[in-house]
């Protein structure tokens, strides 16, 4: 059996959040999402949660499971789980969070290809090699599930966050792009990144967020004349983490 303790809160009718515990039979290969589905469909117990694909494409079923951000269609069910909404986001109801503010920041990085004026598009298929696109291709694995944003300890006021930086890196690493991506990285507060690597650990798509996305953007910033974007000193890591949002 799987024992799941689930966060429940409907702000318009409940005086306070509470938890309910359910037990469902453990099925072969069962994912966390499967447990939630079984609670509704087989036990007839209402819980609100989002999912739209079940196979790591929509990026909308991220929640906090046993204290860690995870994509619930991806991670296996554990015998005893506490399932809570994705930490650091306002709760709409139960396990459904309001992503709007963070989703909007994903658009702040100008996530569109800007070809240099002297290199216009000349028709399909354009000359482009797989090797030149490899780093950008790794960034394209991002499904914007925001698990990394939930894991990130840096306050959001001055830092655009790891998911937006991955999106920025996706274009910065594309050899066809001519926009000033370094300026956007600096404006997004890349210097605030504490280099803790919690984003990489949380990423269900296996993207080396710290090691390739953020490090690559930093290199670009330095090359482009923004020395302050360089790697954070170790002590910064120690200072920022304890002051971060309540996780």
């Amino acid at each position: 059996m799987v024992r799941a303790t689930v966060f429940k809160f409907a702000p318009d009718v409940d005086p306070a959040p509470h938890y309910e515990t359910f037990e469902v039979p453990l099925a072969r290969g069962m994912r966390v999402l499967d447990v939630l589905e079984a609670i509704r469909e087989d036990l007839g117990q209402p819980i609100s949660y989002r999912w739209l694909c079940g196979v790591k494409k929509c990026g909308l079923c991220a929640m906090t499971v046993n204290g860690r951000p995870c994509l619930t269609c991806w991670e296996p069910a554990e015998p005893d789980m506490i399932i809570e909404p994705l930490a650091g986001f306002p709760v709409i109801r139960d396990l459904v969070v309001d992503r709007d503010a963070v989703d909007a920041r994903l658009l702040d990085v100008d996530p569109f290809l800007h070809r240099p004026e002297d290199q216009p598009y000349r028709g399909f298929p354009e000359p482009l090699s797989g090797a030149a696109m490899r780093r950008a291709g790794t960034m394209m694995n991002c499904i914007e599930c925001l698990a990394c944003v939930s894991a990130c300890p840096v306050p959001r006021e001055r830092f655009i966050g790891p998911a937006a930086l991955v999106q920025l890196a996706r274009w910065a690493f594309d050899p066809r792009d001519g926009a000033d991506r370094a300026a956007l990285a600096v404006a997004g507060g890349i210097a605030e990144c504490a280099d803790c690597g919690d984003c990489t650990a949380a990423c269900p798509a296996g993207i080396p967020v710290k090691e390739i996305a953020i490090a690559g953007l930093r290199e670009l910033c330095i090359r482009s004349g923004y020395p302050d974007a360089g790697p954070a000193p170790q002590e910064k890591c120690r200072l920022v983490v304890p002051r971060g949002r309540d996780r």
Partner: peptide, 25 residues
């Protein structure tokens, strides 16, 4: 598909998988 779909998307940044020599896989 060839007159509009592929060029419209590629112009906007779509990456159709290539090998290291640049041929579409």
């Amino acid at each position: 598909t060839f007159d509009h779909f592929y060029p419209w998307l590629e112009e906007r940044g779509l990456y159709i998988l290539r090998d290291d020599d640049g041929a579409v896989v």
